[in-house]
């Protein structure tokens, strides 16, 4: 399937999802749906670096928060429409990804992982001490109740996140099928051999961290408008970092389908657990599933289904 066809199909599905949600007419569906979509973008973004090149990013929350706080900053400084903020948040977090990669990607993989963890804490401390964006107490964002042509504001946000989801999935699938994705796979398999085959590994890894970080920032940019109030501990929440890893790992890391499946599954479980029991239980389930899958089913759900289908046909 060509990329343009894929984008068209995705857009059609997205339009159908939106129409369905409107027909259902429940505001809660939009609120819950927004979270699921946001996690699809985050998981897909994580997987572009983690799944395709094999470098673990523990600092997804940092990139997400950079997007969120870019919006907060501009909300105070010079209000801009959300699509513009999404682009700005993406550019900024992409640049941070690039810088982060430049610092640590020349070292062993574990250092990159630890470095991303460090980045999250450093950025959180900076934001906590930066009173212009609210400091530790957080910042309120006044949002309109209605959006022209669309109706309730949450529907507008939902639509934006839907568009971002289509964008993220198309980027991921595009990379997979390009020369870039081919190079990423060689890095994941064996970096030394990749270099010896002429693959400029450092450059490709930097491209991956930039794209991945950028998409995470884009996912975070509308967040203040969704919640109406952001504080460092919510924007930098560990649950973003854990979900961003768990979703691709549980879904399957080698293709764009895995993070999509993992995100829909885990985000839905968490929404359900939050409403019925407690949000702690929801994240506990995610953690247990993550450990269970990496030990018992390293190829994720996609691998399990693939193995089951091969088993039946062969």
């Amino acid at each position: 399937m060509r990329s343009s066809t894929f984008v068209l199909i995705c857009t059609a599905i997205a339009a159908a999802v939106f129409a369905l949600a409107r027909w259902y007419g429940n505001e809660y569906a939009f609120f819950a749906g927004y979270v699921v979509l946001q996690f699809i973008v985050l998981a897909t973004a994580w997987n572009i670096l983690g799944g395709y090149t094999g470098y673990v990013n523990f600092g997804s929350a940092a990139f997400f928060a950079v997007g969120a706080y870019t919006s907060i900053f501009f909300h105070k400084f010079y209000p801009l429409p959300i699509p513009v903020l999404i682009v700005l948040g993406g550019v900024l977090s992409g640049l941070i990804g690039l810088g982060m990669g430049y610092l640590t990607l020349r070292l062993r993989g574990a250092f990159f992982a630890i470095g991303t963890l460090a980045l999250a804490v450093v950025l959180q401390t900076l934001v906590t001490n930066w009173t212009y964006v609210g400091g530790a107490r957080g910042a309120y964002v006044l949002r309109p109740n209605e959006m022209e042509f669309i109706g309730p504001y949450i529907q507008y946000l939902f639509l934006l996140m839907l568009a971002l989801t289509v964008f993220a999935l198309s980027v991921a699938r595009g990379i997979e099928r390009s020369q870039l994705g081919y190079g990423f796979a060689t890095i994941r398999d064996d970096e030394l051999a990749a270099e010896a085959s002429g693959v400029p590994t450092l450059r490709l890894k930097l491209i991956a961290t930039t794209i991945s970080g950028g998409l995470m920032g884009m996912a975070g940019a509308p967040f203040p408008y969704y919640l109406g109030y952001v504080q460092p501990s919510s924007a930098f929440g560990l649950e973003y970092a854990v979900n961003a890893i768990a979703m691709p790992m549980i879904g399957g890391t080698t293709s764009w389908v895995g993070p999509l499946i993992g995100a829909i599954l885990l985000a839905t479980i968490q929404q359900w657990a939050t409403v019925t029991i407690s949000s702690e239980l929801g994240v506990l389930i995610v953690g247990v599933l993550l450990v269970g899958f990496v030990v018992l089913a390293p190829k994720g759900i996609v691998g399990l289904v693939g193995g089951w289908r091969r088993g039946r046909s062969g």
Binding site: A185, D190, L192
Partner: peptide, 12 residues
């Protein structure tokens, strides 16, 4: 170069 211990790309 070729490597002393073969280092193929396992997923390709």
């Amino acid at each position: 170069r070729s490597f002393q211990l073969p280092r193929p790309f396992m997923s390709l």
